[in-house]
C-alpha cells in the first residue's frame, strides 16, 4: 500500500536533515512537523541509526580494502637484535640509534594532535524535547536542536540570546570549542569549574583538553590528575592523556 504523500515528504525532509542539506528555516519547519507528530520522531531516530550503520559498514569496507592491500605486500622484516663482534660496529650502531632517536623524536605529537585525538563534541544524553509549536520554542531549545545536528555556527547566536544559566553557559562553551574558539571556551569553562557547576566531570575534562590545545600543560595535568583519581566516565581517557603529556 502506498504511504500518504505527507509521510513520504516528511521522510525526504528527515533524510535531507540527517544529510545536513536543510537550511535553518527548513530545519525549524521540520521541527514543527516533528513536534506536532511525535511518531515522526521515531522516523528521525531510525534515519540517524541508518546513517550511522552506513558509516560503520563503509569503515569496515575500507578496513577490508587495506587488509587486501596488505596481503599483496612483502612481509615486514623487523630488525632482530645482533651481537656486535667489534667495538667499531657497536659504535656505528650507537650512532645510528642516536640518529633514529632524533628522527623519531620529531614524531612526538604536538598539542594540536593530542587535542584532535581526544576531542569529540559533547553529546547530550537526552535528546532535545520538543514542546508546543515552533514559534513557542525558546532560543535555547532551538539552539539545542541545532547543536545536536552539528550546526554549531547557527546554534551559537541562539544560545547567546537565551536566558542565562549554567546549562546555557556549558553549551556555549561546548559550541565555542566545536567552532575552534578555544580561548572563549576556556573562559566559560574555568568559571563553571570554579563554581562547581553540573556536569562537573565533563566540564573538568573539556577544560583539561582545552588547556592541552593552548599548551597550558601544567593546568591540564592538574585537572587530569583530578579526573584520573576518581570514578567517572573520563577516568581512563584522563589517565591515558596524562601519560602522553
Amino acid at each position: 500500500m502506498t504511504k500518504p504523500m505527507e509521510e513520504q515528504e516528511v521522510l525526504k525532509k528527515i533524510e535531507d536533515f540527517v544529510g545536513g542539506e536543510l537550511n535553518q528555516e527548513e530545519e525549524f519547519q521540520l521541527m514543527s512537523i516533528l513536534n506536532n507528530n511525535p511518531k515522526y520522531m521515531d522516523l528521525l531516530n531510525d534515519e540517524k541509526d541508518l546513517a550511522e550503520g552506513i558509516k560503520q559498514w563503509s569503515k569496515k569496507e575500507l578496513k577490508e580494502r587495506l587488509q587486501s592491500i596488505e596481503a599483496t605486500l612483502n612481509p615486514i622484516q623487523l630488525e632482530s637484535r645482533r651481537s656486535y663482534k667489534t667495538p667499531l660496529l657497536a659504535a656505528a650502531s650507537v650512532s645510528i640509534l642516536i640518529a633514529l632517536y632524533f628522527v623519531f623524536n620529531t614524531i612526538t605529537p604536538n598539542s594540536q594532535d593530542l587535542f584532535n585525538t581526544y576531542y569529540e563534541p559533547y553529546q547530550p544524553y537526552a535528546p532535545v524535547t520538543m514542546r508546543g509549536e515552533v514559534s513557542d520554542l525558546d532560543s535555547f531549545d532551538k539552539a539545542q536542536f541545532l547543536y545536536e545536528s552539528g550546526e554549531f555556527e547557527k546554534a551559537l547566536p541562539l544560545y547567546l540570546n537565551s536566558e542565562p544559566s549554567d546549562e546555557r553557559d556549558f553549551f556555549i562553551a561546548q559550541t565555542q570549542l566545536a567552532l575552534n574558539n578555544v580561548d572563549d571556551a576556556i573562559g566559560i569553562l574555568e568559571n563553571l569549574h570554579k563554581t562547581g557547576a553540573h556536569p562537573k566531570t565533563t566540564i573538568t575534562w573539556f577544560l583539561a583538553l582545552s588547556y592541552v590545545k593552548t599548551e597550558n600543560f601544567d593546568a591540564s595535568k592538574t585537572l587530569l590528575q583530578e579526573l584520573s583519581t576518581t570514578d567517572n566516565a573520563y577516568q581512563e581517557k584522563a589517565k591515558e592523556l596524562l601519560k602522553s603529556l
Partner: peptide, 10 residues
C-alpha cells in the same frame, strides 16, 4: 605522516 603516526601511537 606525523599526524598518522601519532594517531597510530595512541
Amino acid at each position: 605522516k606525523t599526524y598518522l603516526f601519532s594517531i597510530g601511537r595512541f
